[in-house]
Design a protein around this nucleic acid. Structure first.
Lengths: 354, 354
DNA sequence: TAAACATTTTAAAGCGCGCTTAAAACATTT
DNA sequence: AAATGTTTTAAGCGCGCTTTAAAATGTTTA
């Protein structure tokens, strides 16, 4: 009882009297309908009226009440976005383009990491359901069963996938053509004269992982080159992992002269590890990355890498979700964005080691 | 009309009949009160009852309706977090510790970048107000006027600051002791024998910037060393900026032998730039960073840097906000967390260049 | 000038509806 | 009979925004 009184009292003190649509309507002598339409830029309202309303709203410090709006529209204006790790710069551009696209439709987005833990991902989806979110864009955690996605959709939370796919999920997926991308990198190394090429980092537990490995294997085999299982050094997708993989790589019996890395982070870590061992990356060992992060261009040596079309992935995913929400959705599509090779100084003709 | 019908129909088809507290209560022959209390782990409910309720809730796929709850509690369960750039690894640990702390109180958090643009920050705060968020944790954008914060608080959105302070804002602030931190780094270089020390990166437009510069200046002066204005090379806080600052640094007339960098990113960029110019960072030029990112330890050479207590900053900020929400808030505090120096290979005795 | 058309504004209904909590009631143990 | 533990009762939290058909106003045509 006491608590309630305190809350109510606080509210009254703080808010004086609440400023709402009708406050504006009364002040300007128009109806709340006009104000509502004007604030949302409806073409029904005359320009002069709209300007007056918006101006007045700003000066009196009106705050749009989304909860009241969603009461009426049954749309919360919230979209969830889950990825492995938002700190991973690979997602930087994707997230930025998603943000741009969602902003345009006045949707707020809630971001979360799942760190490839199914439990975290489920908790997040649950939170979105609790909040009544309008949809979710996700880079699914390793091992995500299609039921998880179906469950979300059945509870009114449409989903769109990025970067990775989930078999039988029957939702739109937007990602780069990973097999093609690693093939680009591998072929580049082969054309420089490398014959013993290792692949470092990543996992085969994701669609991305399998595709990237396949692209590498296909390119090698098409060139008539051998692929030794020991040349595949899987691992996390971090600089730290690349750094640690260096010693294992350098200890390989056949002395590969080049490494196709899972991503730029692994590649940069590997180059650091190679340098720490007294060799010169880009001369003694050729290294390719993947993603073309900003950092790739300023690494030493500058990193040859595969650009992945992140911006397109984010933009299209957001659009697809918005279309779904608007009910103008096309059928679920599996869109592959074609990557491009950016050649820099981390790759060169092979040098035989003593 | 058509639209509405479609929406309603879709809802009915999708949700069949909504599962709510009373569904569980009826099925188990208890009251909704018991169910409510059980789900929130109230000690009022017997263990056996609680287990039965939770178990049943899970099996029938009950989804807690936060909007209904917030109708009653007038708490949305949403907390906003704004920083310059969530991709910046400096914030990684801060955000993680905030997340941990908020999770514990079943708060969801909405993340946003403001990229030091006041307008973006205002838009975000506005969004939080519209959503009825419970509070905001922010690393304020450069030039944030105290009125912005006061406005948020007056509209029922309590704020807590991290990393930077805003004069006269009268809200809790949690950040590292920046002056002390750069003094640590500078003193370390001085003790190695450096006398011409440059400071690279960052800006003087933030409290952090002024403090870090002051710490450097104080340390220099206390050691009786000269501080030339040309030795201060301000700039963005990115690797790219550090990389680009290298040529300017190396062209300085007096040939400083060491550089105190704004943060690890700038330091690593600078080291890349120094290496690109044919010099060896850590030997020819000593470099210190700030933040002690994971990356600092695996850089080549491993970076001497200042650990900033990010985890503490995040944890305490979140706690302070939660206390404010619970009404148990202490008075606004300005808490400084003491940094520590981590010495690695990027610093050594000075070598005179030809 | 009246009809037809275009533009702008309004009236009015209805969206959401389950969850929390203080206080009372009941059950069990000292 | 008092104290402790568990469950239920019952009231009330929130209350402004959106939307569409229809009316009002303004403008052009016959």
């Amino acid at each position: 009882m006491f608590k309630r009184l305190r809350g109510a009292a606080a509210r009254e003190v703080k808010l004086a009297q609440k400023i709402k649509l009708s406050t504006i309507a009364d002040a300007l002598g128009v109806s709340t309908a006009t104000v509502s339409l004007a604030l949302r830029d409806s073409p029904l309202v005359a320009d002069s009226t709209r300007d007056r309303i918006k101006e007045h709203a700003r000066t009196i410090g009106y705050i749009y009440n989304r909860r009241a709006a969603s009461l009426r529209t049954s749309r919360s204006g919230i979209v969830g976005v889950v990825v492995h790790d938002i700190m991973n710069p690979f997602f930087a551009e994707i997230l930025r383009s998603i943000e741009t696209e969602l902003d345009r439709s006045r949707q707020t987005f809630i971001l979360s990491n799942h760190y490839d833990q199914l439990e975290k991902q489920r908790t997040f989806i649950d939170t979105l359901l609790q909040l009544g979110a309008d949809g979710v864009i996700m880079s699914p955690a390793i091992g995500t069963p299609p039921e998880d996605i179906r469950m979300a959709e059945e509870n009114g939370l449409p989903a769109v996938l990025i970067a990775r796919t989930v078999e039988n999920a029957n939702v739109p997926v937007f990602r780069g053509d990973d097999a093609y991308g690693t093939a680009l990198a591998t072929n580049h190394l082969i054309s420089l004269g490398h014959t013993r090429i290792s692949m470092i980092g990543g996992t085969d537990q994701t669609s991305t992982g399998r595709d990237r490995y396949q692209g590498y294997v296909d390119a090698m085999e098409k060139a008539g080159l051998e692929v030794k299982p020991s040349w595949r050094i899987p691992g996390p997708r971090t600089k730290q992992a690349g750094f640690e993989a260096a010693s294992q790589f350098l200890a390989l019996k056949d002395h590969p002269t080049a490494a196709v890395c899972w991503n730029d982070l692994v590649a940069i870590g590997l180059m650091n590890g190679i340098a720490r061992a007294g060799l010169t990356p880009g001369v003694d060992i050729s290294v390719t990355g993947y993603d073309d992060l900003e950092e790739a261009a300023i690494a030493t040596p500058a990193l040859t890498t595969v650009w992945n079309g992140q911006r397109e992935v984010g933009r299209r995913a957001a659009r697809a979700l918005l279309d779904k929400l608007a009910g103008t959705a096309l059928k679920p599509s599996q869109e592959l964005i074609k990557p491009e090779l950016h050649v820099r100084q981390s790759t060169s003709r092979p040098v035989e080691r003593a």
